[in-house]
Design a protein around this nucleic acid. Structure first.
Lengths: 136, 136
DNA sequence: TTAAATGCAAAAAATTTGCAGACGT
DNA sequence: ACGTCTGCAAATTTTTTGCATTTAA
């Protein structure tokens, strides 16, 4: 947990216990929605306010400490910022996995087909995870 | 406009004037947010209710007539459903362009790196359009 | 010690619902 | 004529804000 305190400070965020726990939860779970975070945080901080979560999510995003992942047909989830990567989401159980892909090919294609200068790519794949697939 | 009436009916939607106009606006503008739609619709239907927009957006999505496009750091926009394609968004002026890309390469990569069975891909590119670029 | 964070309550914004009257088919 | 849609008002849900108190540094 001392770990999380340091990484918070590196992002110019005061290391409060609530923030350390948010960090720990995101680290452990990978991706969590606001309500999921709230439910989990409340176990440790009984008097926790939703407002605190929103304020922290917002400042953590401003400081590029966490990133929002917008997923078609679902609520947004948040993750600790890391190098660019894609996501794959299970349509059955909503499990989310990070997946590192080489997008050079598509980015080259894209630059040829548009007059935009491209800065970043956000890719979300939808499918069915192996657990759900074997359960069918 | 007769056109829009037909395409609405093909999707099992009663062709009301409000719906025809929503269709026309999406067809003309490509991508619109809820508030943009509301502002534009109000010009034609002074007594229009936001509730009507929400109800229509929802039923149109259920009937796969329109599709929501979720964009990082911005409000969602809606478009008439068409064959799968990616989007490129200007960070300066929020302009959105459709872009058809061949994703075979990444999908192949992805299937090799995950145990998920992949059904669809949602790709949003971020960058700067040529107009904004020359304005810098 | 001081600026910033928390928690609470209230406010604002976004979305949904219920219902009476109007309208599409 | 029937079932659905619209518009309005009210209800929910989601997110933000203000302020007194606490707390990290």
């Amino acid at each position: 947990m001392e770990n999380y305190v340091n990484i918070l400070r590196q992002h110019n965020l005061k290391a409060t216990p609530q923030r350390a726990e948010i960090t720990a939860l995101l680290d452990r779970h990978g991706h969590l929605s606001i309500e999921e975070l709230y439910e989990l945080l409340k176990k440790k901080f009984h008097s926790l306010s939703l407002a605190t979560i929103y304020k922290n999510i917002n400042i953590m995003m401003e400081n590029s400490f966490i990133t929002e992942v917008k997923i078609p047909q679902q609520k947004s989830v948040y993750e600790l910022s890391k190098e660019a990567h894609a996501h794959i989401v299970c349509q059955e159980c909503n499990a989310i996995e990070d997946i590192h892909l080489n997008l050079e090919g598509v980015l080259t294609q894209a630059s040829q087909k548009t007059t935009f200068h491209i800065d970043s790519a956000h890719l979300v794949l939808k499918g069915v995870c192996s657990t759900c697939r074997s359960a069918l």
